[in-house]
């Protein structure tokens, strides 16, 4: 091989090599092309081997040309290899495609009962205000349920609601969680700041607005200097935490034997802000009964009614839940109907 021939071969190999590389359509074909253009048996390698027999000037000139060609071919090979790898991966990814609109895998999700959710929320507000939760038995004796609460046997208030009695003489299913007030005051000296959540019972036929078993959160504060204004402020704080910062509280006189002065407390409607709507009717949502603890109740618990005053309130959990969530039929709370319960998915602590 003479230098002219070497020159010609390099030129031919450039054209042939680039075209082979470009037409390789798989990594196997590209490997074959690489062997064909740069392998030991390739014409390019023959030229390289022949370089040693040329005179120094030709050797230098053609050596440079050969290097330049090798670099060009190598870079074409690399580029083609990358392209092929990309296409290969794209093919693999395409084969891996899934229907992303199918629903995801997940654990079953349970739910808390709406009364649990609402009770937790109410109790949470009061515990953050410094109140402690107290509990008492659901089967109460006459003293704690009635007598101590200033409801003697022939008191007309006993006929206000019919009670359910059990076969144990002198015991009944508590009609209010107020009994817990008495138990607490009997066992603890003031100051007392408690809430008593729990089940209460009435002898009442179950319908859309009545349940024979329902829930209350009762509150009691007994301390030196507790006033009616403290009651209002406390309930206002509570109502704002529960229903929003702009709520107002209205008290109207009402009667419960264990408080005096007694009141019925309404909150300005959270839907219409007190202008009147389907939720509230006249702008106010009647929420609870409350009042100043009757001195006779304090005396019944051995507390000095001259030194200490107190307030008490009782909130119906069902009532709050109904207003809050637009529940129109109280029976939903006790039916265990999943179609109702699942609407509270995700709610609660």
């Amino acid at each position: 091989m003479d230098p002219q021939e070497a020159r010609r071969i390099l030129d031919e190999e450039r054209e042939r090599g680039l075209s082979m590389i470009a037409s390789a359509d798989s990594s196997e074909a590209l490997d074959a092309a690489k062997v064909g253009v740069l392998g030991r048996k390739s014409r390019f390698s023959q030229v390289q081997r022949a370089l040693g027999s040329f005179d120094p000037e030709d050797r230098k000139r053609l050596g440079m040309a050969a290097n330049e060609l090798r670099e060009a071919l190598q870079s074409a090979l690399d580029e083609r290899s990358r392209a092929l790898a990309g296409a290969e991966q794209a093919r693999l990814l395409e084969g891996d495609r899934i229907d992303v609109t199918l629903p995801g895998r997940r654990l079953r999700t349970g739910s808390l009962h709406p009364l649990t959710i609402v009770e937790d929320e109410m109790v949470g507000i009061f515990t953050r205000m410094g109140y402690r939760v107290e509990e008492g038995p659901e089967i109460e004796d006459d003293w704690h349920n009635f007598e101590a609460l200033n409801i003697p046997p022939d008191h007309p208030a006993r006929t206000m609601k019919d009670s359910l009695y059990v076969e144990i003489p002198g015991f009944l299913l508590r009609t209010e969680t107020s009994a817990v007030q008495i138990r607490t005051m009997e066992s603890q000296d003031p100051p007392v700041y408690i809430v008593a959540p729990g089940r209460t019972y009435r002898r009442e036929a179950v319908d859309a607005t009545h349940l024979s078993v329902f829930h209350q959160v009762e509150g009691l504060a007994v301390d030196e200097g507790i006033s009616f204004a403290d009651l209002k402020g406390t309930l206002e704080t509570f109502a704002r935490a529960l229903f929003g910062p702009d709520r107002r509280v209205r008290m109207n006189p009402d009667y419960f034997p264990f408080v005096e002065p007694g009141c019925q407390v309404a909150v300005s409607c959270f839907k219409c802000d007190g202008t009147g709507c389907a939720v509230c009717g006249n702008g106010w949502i009647e929420l609870l009964g409350a009042g100043m603890v009757h001195p006779k109740v304090l005396e019944n618990c051995g507390i000095d009614a001259e030194r200490y005053t107190g307030f008490a309130f009782g909130i119906g959990v069902e009532r709050v839940a109904m207003v809050r969530h637009g529940v129109s039929d109280m029976r939903m709370f006790v039916e265990g109907d999943v179609r109702f319960l699942q609407q509270f998915q995700g709610a609660g602590a």
């Binding site: 403290d230 209002k232 509280v249 006189p253």
Partner: peptide, 18 residues
Amino acid sequence: YERVGSTVPPVRQVGGVP
């Protein structure tokens, strides 16, 4: 009753549940 003001008693304990 609308004349009654609005105050909060000074509770000197930490709240909580049993």
